[in-house]
Design a protein around this nucleic acid. Structure first.
Ligand SMILES: [Mg+2]
Length: 207
DNA sequence: GCGACAG
DNA sequence: ATCTTGTCGC
């Protein structure tokens, strides 16, 4: 059942954390921004990836990927639960996003590898972590999330925490997320969340 | 050792 | 995140 060896999982996270790139390394100017989220129906995960035009925040396309999820949710190990459905959905996109917003933390993590960074390193794509609640660290007077003496993220709102995922600097990540806001909520992940739940409800009718 | 703890 | 319908209010 719980196929998750926390000992090995933590080791893998520390290993991959060393591969996280914290400087801008993506196509500029950004044309397409992606967003990913996952909804669940029992043990079935429904991952959704959206792709929007950066300048207009208009949805261009979105795809979903359904897969069985046997890994339980364990704080700081979220990636092992959500990466499969998220990756499946991202790979189904016809166009490729220049950077992807992930509904989770990136560098704001005990071992420096939240799900947003984990996905970025594994797929080698630029990512940004956009979480709705804190995980670690303290917010200083300027809004930066400080953890172990390092500025790992930024609190953009009461329910919005931004952090480096992969191949992007914190300042650039903050700027990009700001440009995707609609009523204080990142549009790419907001839509991914909505579509994931829509697919889920379709499944409810049947089973 | 105790408590916190993304989604 | 999920379980779960209707209902109050703009
Ligand atoms: Mg989510």
């Amino acid at each position: 059942m719980p196929r998750l060896n926390l000992k090995k999982a933590a080791y893998l996270q520390r290993h991959l954390a060393g591969k996280v790139i914290t400087v801008d390394d993506f196509n500029k100017p950004v044309r397409y921004v992606g967003g990913v989220d996952v909804a669940y129906k029992r043990r079935v995960g429904i991952g959704v990836a959206t792709l929007l035009e950066y300048d207009s925040m208009r949805l261009v396309e979105y795809k979903h990927y359904i897969t069985e999820v046997d890994v339980p949710y364990v704080p700081t190990f979220l990636a092992f639960r959500e990466i499969p459905p998220m990756v499946g959905a991202i790979e189904r996109l016809e166009k490729k996003p220049d950077i992807v917003l992930v509904d989770a933390h990136g560098l704001v993590h005990p071992r420096g590898l939240g799900a947003a960074s984990h996905i970025g390193v594994v797929l080698d794509i630029p990512t940004i972590g956009v979480a709705k609640s804190p995980l670690v660290g303290k917010v200083d007077e300027d809004g930066y999330i400080v953890y172990k003496g390092r500025r790992v993220g930024y609190k953009l709102g009461p329910r919005l925490y931004v952090s480096i995922g992969h191949r992007v600097s914190l300042e650039t990540a903050i700027e990009i997320v700001k440009n995707t806001l609609r009523n204080s909520v990142p549009e790419p992940t907001r839509l991914a969340h909505i579509y994931a739940n829509k697919v889920k409800k379709e499944m409810d009718k049947e089973s």
